[in-house]
């Protein structure tokens, strides 16, 4: 446990000793801020129109702001997570610092969990910074708390799935660009896999729908925390990290 913590701490600090963390956080906050502002003003405009001219329909804060903003946040994480994870193992391999970890009295599992934890913590920091939006909403209105909590939990789990994919690809290559590109491509693939369900037969469409990362998010955004969804995300993360373990272990046999 202490070893996981040591690795996580070092990697987390490494994010902040290089420009990566600052660029990612600044980009993330810039885009999110703009999205929040845009949705908020659209929401105001629409409700104003409804109240004054009885045009359109009255929107709740959940449907007008929370769901679109946090839905978009998930897309942004799809883009940003590759930049967060691509260096984790690829750089260690390139700088041959992986040898330091592999010859230290720690297990591969501890290394992988440490790496995961460090990237998870960075995502956590990014999400924590967005807590300003619910604070704004609560100070000015009366939003449902359920969808907000659900969105945060769902986003955390969904981006952890990307993290686990990213860590897997980072371990498989020493080229960070390749690792990042594969992470993005596979993340997008698991996002859009349910599109194939329309063309597939009844059994396969079930399978594709089940595998789609975004399908499991929908419940969260409505404030429903379904154990089946949580379990799906946790298994997705677990499989990614397990495969990482296999990849790293295979180096020793080459």
């Amino acid at each position: 446990m202490r070893n996981i913590w040591t690795i996580a701490r070092r990697d987390f600090r490494a994010y902040f000793t290089s420009p990566i963390a600052y660029i990612i956080i600044a980009g993330f906050m810039g885009i999110m801020g703009w999205m929040f502002f845009w949705n908020l003003s659209q929401f105001n405009l629409q409700n104003l129109q409804h109240n004054q001219f009885n045009a359109g329909k009255m929107m709740s804060i959940t449907d007008g702001i929370i769901r679109p903003v946090y839905g978009n946040m998930n897309v942004i994480f799809l883009f940003l997570v590759p930049f967060i994870t691509m260096r984790l193992f690829a750089e260690e391999r390139k700088q041959s610092t992986l040898q330091l970890l592999m010859t230290a009295p720690i297990t591969l599992t501890e290394i992988i969990f440490g790496k995961f934890l460090s990237s998870f913590a960075l995502v956590g920091v990014m999400l924590a910074l967005t807590l300003i939006y619910p604070i704004v909403l609560f100070s000015a209105g009366n939003p449902d708390i359920g969808p907000i909590v659900g969105s945060y939990l769902g986003t955390l789990l969904l981006s952890s799935c990307y993290l686990s994919l990213g860590i897997l690809f980072s371990s498989a290559t020493e080229n960070q660009i390749v690792a990042g590109a594969l992470t993005f491509a596979s993340g997008l693939f698991f996002w859009l896999i349910n599109w194939a369900s329309q063309a597939a037969g009844p059994v396969w469409s079930e399978v594709f729908n089940y595998l789609s990362l975004i399908n499991h998010y929908n419940n969260f955004s409505q404030g429903l925390i379904n154990s089946a969804d949580v379990l799906f995300y946790l298994s997705f993360i677990g499989i990614g990290l397990f495969l990482t373990h296999r990849v790293l272990d295979s180096f020793r046999w080459r």
Partner: peptide
């Protein structure tokens, strides 16, 4: 019980 210095020292340059 072992200290190892590989051919390329495993250094984190940013530390």
């Amino acid at each position: 019980n072992v200290g190892f210095l590989p051919e390329t020292p495993p250094l984190y340059l940013e530390m």
